[in-house]
Every structure is written in structure tokens, then in C-alpha cells.
Design a protein around this nucleic acid. Sequence first.
DNA 1: TCAATTATGCAATTAAGTTGCATTTATGTA
DNA 2: TACATAAATGCAACTTAATTGCATAATTGA
Lengths: 139, 139
Amino acid sequence: MQNQDRNEQILKSHNLRITDCRKDVVDYFLGVKKALSQGDLEQKFKQYDRVTLYRTLNSFLDSGILHKIPNATGVATYGLCHETCSPDHHDHNHIHFKCNSCGQIECLDDKEVPAVSIPKGYQVETVNMIVDGICAKCA
Amino acid sequence: MQNQDRNEQILKSHNLRITDCRKDVVDYFLGVKKALSQGDLEQKFKQYDRVTLYRTLNSFLDSGILHKIPNATGVATYGLCHETCSPDHHDHNHIHFKCNSCGQIECLDDKEVPAVSIPKGYQVETVNMIVDGICAKCA
DNA sequence: TCAATTATGCAATTAAGTTGCATTTATGTA
DNA sequence: TACATAAATGCAACTTAATTGCATAATTGA
């Protein structure tokens, strides 16, 4: 399936209206296959207002198209969710890799987050694993 | 050892000058035993300029007293490093727990981050594990 | 095609992070 | 103890990210 078909399907299946901005943003995520920030989108899509891009990201978060990736820089970055994600239950239990050379953040979809032991009385909802280092391209 | 002695010792051992602001900030971290943000410090220490607090956090980061904890909110949070941390080699290979109820971020010092498998060609430098859920106090 | 709902663009605001510079403070040494 | 040097602080100002309100434009179902 082409991205231009797939993006509309993604928006429809998450009950979002089809707009140019949303299609373009989904397209971009489908194409680059890496995590993006608000700033990345602003640079890529100068034809859209930054507030619109901001709200697009938020509607994608709410509807479960994207997930937020924790990082230490203070800039929020977003990655595409698996098809199995729903707004309530996110199934993106994979590892995020941040390259300290090129700065890109990748979702290592095929790498499971290992089991984690937590003290008594704590309830686990989500586990995030962020690995910093040098990616294969920069090594 | 009391905190008021311990904070000076911590500053000295990291080659930082002893100032009121730095002692107070280290004290606070020693006392609360959780991760704090710039905003937390501003609320707690209205007698110090926000820039001073900002630079205090940064000098603590540089000297290895604190480490930055990745999170998805976009607000940088900081936690006390183990005594074994040096500026170059951080040994805070523990799990961070963020409570979705009270919002507090704890360092689970006694919980090791499990081994992680990474694709070929990737070099690992740091591994961060952030667990979201409900802490023992809120459960 | 129309009405209702939703998205967008623009203006403006809040907050975090950052820098420059003058002043004050801490520290080692005489 | 006093002094000189180096560093920390406070203030002003600036940049950028995040956020909200509102009028206008576009989408969608009937």
C-alpha cells in the first residue's frame, strides 16, 4: 500500500478528519521511520502554522497514532505507534535508541524491553527504555 | 552524618565552592530523595535568582553530583548521583520510577537496569529505564 | 447542498532555557 | 588577617517551546 493511501486509512481508523496537514505529517512519519520533534515538523512544513503542527501532534497523541518518547534534552519527540496501539493501551514496548553523533532517535521495533523488577507496592503501567550511543550509520 | 556536614563534603569532593545556594540545593536533594526540576527549586528557594538555580543545577550536572533523568513531559528533572559517580563516568544504572498519580520521580537505586540487546553495529553508551505507574504511597 | 462540527491561522501569553555584564563572594596565599 | 584572583550571583534581556482564545475556513454526515 502506498503512503498516500495508508495515511488516510490511519487517520480514518483513529476517527480523525482528513486534512492536508495531518496527511502530510503522517506521511512524513511513515517515510522517515524515526522520532520527530515539533521543531522537525516546523522546518519540514513551513506552509503550516506551528500551532497547527502542535495541535496535530497532540491529536495524534490522543488518538494513539503517535507516542511520546522520553529524553533528557527537554524537547519532546514523537514516534509512530504500532498498528496495535489504541488511545488507552499503548503497545510500543520497544527500545528507543538515541544516537549521540547524528542525534536521531530510532524505534527498535524488534527489540523487546526486558522484564523489570519493581519494589513491592508499585504498580507498573508503562516501561520506557532509552539507549544512548552510536548508531550503525555513524559507527 | 548530618546533611549540613554532608552537603559541604559533597561540594568539596567535586571541587565546587561552598555557597549558600549550593548548600541549600544539595540539602534539598538529600532530604527529599526524589528527582527535582528547575521549577521545584524556584518554588522552594525564592531567595535565589532563577538563573542562579539554573547555573547551580548545571554545575552539579557537570561535576557529577546530579544526573538528568529523561522524561516525556519536556521538563528536565534531576536526581542525585551515587557516590561512585564521576563527571566522566556516571554509575547511575538504576531504574527511574514516575508515579502517574503524585507525579514524583524516584530513583530506585537498588534495582538494576536489565541487560539490553541492540542490533549489530550499534554502540551502547548509556541505558535509561523509566517506569511509569503508581508508587507505593499512592496505590 | 446545508448545517454542524472541527481544524486552521493569527495574535498573544506563559514558561523554560540561555547569555552578557556588573557586582559580590569565596578561597588560597602572603 | 588582609589581599588578589577567580568564581558565583543577580539583574536585564533574549530565544525558543508550549499553550490559549478567537475569528475564519474546511470537513463531514444528513
